[in-house]
Nucleic acid binder design. Sequence first.
RNA 1: GUGGGCGUAGCUCAAUUAGGUUAGAGCGUCUGGUUGUGGCCCAGAAGGCUGGGGGUUCAAGUCCCCUCGCUCACCCCA
Length: 431
Amino acid sequence: MPSSGLRRPRGTADRLPADAPAWEDVRQTFARECRLRNFQPISTPTFETTELFDKGTGSTTDIVQNEMYTFDDRGGDSVTLRPEGTPSVVRAYQQHGMHVLPQPVKLYYVLPVFRYDRPQAGRLREHHQIGAEALGDPSPAVDAEVIDLLWSTLQALGVTDLALHVNSLGDPESRPEYRAALVDFFTPHADKLCADCQMRLTQNPLRLVDCKKRTCARVSADAPRSLDYVGDAARRHFDTLRDLLGALDIPCTPDHRLVRGLDYYNRTVFEIVPPDSGAQGTVGGGGRYDYLAEALGGPHLPGVGFGSGIERILLNRRRVGLEEAPPPPPEVYVAPLADEALRVVTTVAADLRRAGIVTEAGYAAASPRSHLRRANAAGARVALIVGRREVEAGRISVKPLDGGDQVDVALDAVVPSTQAALAGPVTASDA
RNA sequence: GUGGGCGUAGCUCAAUUAGGUUAGAGCGUCUGGUUGUGGCCCAGAAGGCUGGGGGUUCAAGUCCCCUCGCUCACCCCA
């Protein structure tokens, strides 16, 4: 690493040309799965009014409390780089009156999200998510479709050994009862809990259940389970969802410790994790949030969605041994051997490109050896050679680089001759 | 926010036992080996204030301190 010069900010990543094919693959695969389910693309601003996340993501969450990139802009307004996609999409739904559209409104996005956190494997301060939200329909069939969208995308990308965990958090009516049960259960053991959990006991008892610290986990082993406190309607919702997932052949594991970190979830929550679920395990997760829209000051609007980290998807593709394709090479390299050839090289390259041929042009006169080495290194399949001889004769040499015969063609025959050379071995008769 | 590991060319790494002259190699890049022909091979060149600062010493890439960065884990999550 060079010590001098500017470096990228901590926790960010450069995406180099070699990375592009893998990213394109994720984008296109996801877009195709979305299209198949009639999800439409949406994109929202990279920064929003801070209030959106305070109210939407929830002020008790770790994200809002410690991880937001928040600053006052020059006009004195507090804005925040989005730490997740869902509140923005719900905001956009409200702002554009999407309630007049057929419901549910099904949207998807691919965008960067920002969280100020200490970087480590699979965790960046700026990362990218694919995500989808279905707004305006409370049916468990929508939950199933949203989960199916993520699941199918991951399958299509070749990550086939993941596990889907699901749970139900019930509804706001049943939440206080469950919360009270948790507090009742944990309070006698408060002295055995970690400092964070002592805090959670009063702040956010739900999160007591998923603390990974050994001592806390031991205490919570017999803790009340949310499913036992869920109301009848939520219970049926959960059962239907599980039945539909079964019908889709999506294996799911009920996980009573799964509560998710965001405040707004109700009923369905889910997470997709690798088999050896290590440190930064979660590839994607989401759930239902029927009361989020109201928290943002709008009318009641049921919704369900997910977010999934592209970097983590890619990590998992590598884990299962998938090779990424290299960036595609140019098809043709046009080599100027003399200064007089530059003009011809430039126009010929333009002609080829108009014909849809991926063309790299040499920018300065150099020896044929030098140019051909370059053409070979670039991976071109055909080299066009323009030297003094060609310029004077009004012709161009077409040289296949995979072993065909080099031919000499008139300027106005360059495009078809090149196409022929790209299609197969050139013979003298083609000239 | 709390801990651990690591910082030498663009990349991967060398630099003998407790410090010893102008810090090397492979890959990659460029040029040449052919006064107009690639791959393989050969030769040459460019490319480093050894992350930065301070200290110890006759002498520091090497030892000490500080700092910055990278990285892994905790935490949190995608």
